[in-house]
Design a protein around this nucleic acid. Structure first.
Lengths: 271, 271
DNA sequence: AAATATATTGCAAAAAACAGCAAAATTAAA
DNA sequence: TTTAATTTTGCTGTTTTTTGCAATATATTT
């Protein structure tokens, strides 16, 4: 009788479990936070689809997370705190240790008197922070936080590429910026990306950011992509470029890691 | 894989069930804790099933464990302690000092759809911070901190004038900046100054900054000087301009204050 | 100004939490 | 061993929380 009940429950479990992906609210909010930290910006509709709940639920979750100061709710979506919060204390950068290791590896590419360009995003910001102090650099940037960081480096001459400022990415965008970029050619540009896929290349959430990144790539002899492995094999709406325009890709993984297999025969230096 | 786990649980249940009476409360709570630590989260219903006790019992257990701070009880289940995010709890408390009154007075000059330029310096930064939120503005700036501040204003479109960044003043300077400024004409520019004197005009410590400020003044129909009274009647090496090119001077003093006597018959609006 | 997208609000169904109570199990004492 | 006291457990009905839906309001874009 009792055993019958157990068998019955087992049966039910077997039948029903694959269908229902039951999720705790906390778990869901955790996933949302993760997504926001990873991509800096997400749409409520995308979240709802990904988590398989109604948009209302996602909206309520985001509202709560915003109230707890864990992210910033914006019209139609949410952005990470780091993007609107200009506090020098970046203790809450997502996957900071990975980004630090990426930045360290990337900085080995630098030579004395190199002319470089550093893009926006938390990984690039980390590079700016960890630039070696023993070599002289001329550094262009269009990111406000990166520029702030570079000002603290005595060995770096910083040139800000002006233009209309994008609120959430905190970088200069628009025609002005693109024109200014057209007039320079740097040795290396270090760029981040919202999403990267071996097949679809680099993609972004924001169309204007894509235009700017394209101009950045054109303004550099070699382009270095800084990207934590979590972003590999993801994609979004707007395409920046194919992977073959990237000279070097830096992740926190060892170059021979299996996760990088898809990128190995693509004429990209893996670091 | 998931199904295998379920089958395995069923099997365990069937085997172990006759012994279930041996399971003490403490033992059960230990099992719950184990499950939570293992999977970071757990549903009460799953626990009840797994441990073959009523949901109420599990609930009470989880409640106790929560009271002992061994896990965190949430609606529908429990999550491990490390799982819940401890909020960074940023406290954005910034003290409003005397410059606020200057900034407030200056902001009364603004009209809807005004195109303005805000210079660097702490007083100008305060203006950026206190810009009214109810009128739309297009705002140029060459100051990094001001730009950061402006990004937080939803009603302000911010354009950064690029150029080489000056380390100590945190503004863009140099030929690039001056060229860019030559191409715009704003309604109002709000500038600070290192030193001001009724006779000698505006002077600065830094030659490059002077060049930039000159270009700013040229790029504006009207120039507003923001200046705390402490700076009145002081001068330095490099001259920016005479006082007669200034349209409005804003101090924290009342316009009729005796300290402003020297500026009263100079065709300058005192605010 | 119209059209679209996003927010807000109220509501109802489902799930979960809670409080009180009685049966069962455990413990303590005779 | 038996009995009484205490704790634990499961059940019931009620309250609260969560969630999705629909209608309305607000915001954004064209």
């Amino acid at each position: 009788m009792k055993v019958n009940g157990i068998i019955w429950n087992c049966f039910l479990l077997l039948i029903l479990n694959p269908n229902k992906n039951l999720m705790l609210k906390e778990e869901r909010q955790h996933a949302i936070l993760n997504e926001v930290e990873l991509h800096n910006r997400v749409l409520l509709t995308d979240l709802a689809e990904k988590l398989d709940v109604s948009i209302d639920t996602v909206r309520r979750d985001v509202k709560e997370l915003d109230a707890e100061n864990l992210l910033t709710k914006v019209h139609g979506g949410a952005v990470s705190l780091g993007f609107v919060n200009h506090s020098p204390a970046r203790s809450n950068v997502y996957a900071l240790d990975k980004k630090v290791s990426i930045a360290k590896k990337a900085s080995t590419l630098l030579r004395n008197n190199s002319v470089i360009l550093i893009d926006g995003g938390t990984t690039c910001l980390e590079l700016a922070r960890l630039l070696p102090t023993n070599i002289k650099l001329t550094c262009f940037t269009l990111s406000l936080p990166v520029a702030m960081e570079l000002l603290g480096k005595p060995n770096v001459e910083t040139i800000f590429i002006g233009g209309t400022l994008s609120r959430d990415s905190q970088i200069a965008v628009g025609s002005n910026t693109i024109n200014a970029l057209a007039q320079i050619k740097v040795d290396y540009s270090f760029i981040g990306t919202g999403y990267v896929d071996a097949e679809f290349g680099l993609t972004e959430f924001d169309w204007e950011v894509v235009q700017t990144k394209k101009a950045v790539i054109n303004a550099s002899k070699k382009t270095v992509l800084l990207c934590i492995s979590e972003k590999l094999n993801s994609q979004h709406r707007f395409k920046t470029c194919d992977l073959n325009v990237i000279s070097t890709m830096v992740t926190e993984l060892e170059p021979w890691d299996k996760k990088l297999d898809a990128f190995k025969n693509m004429n990209i230096q893996l670091l």
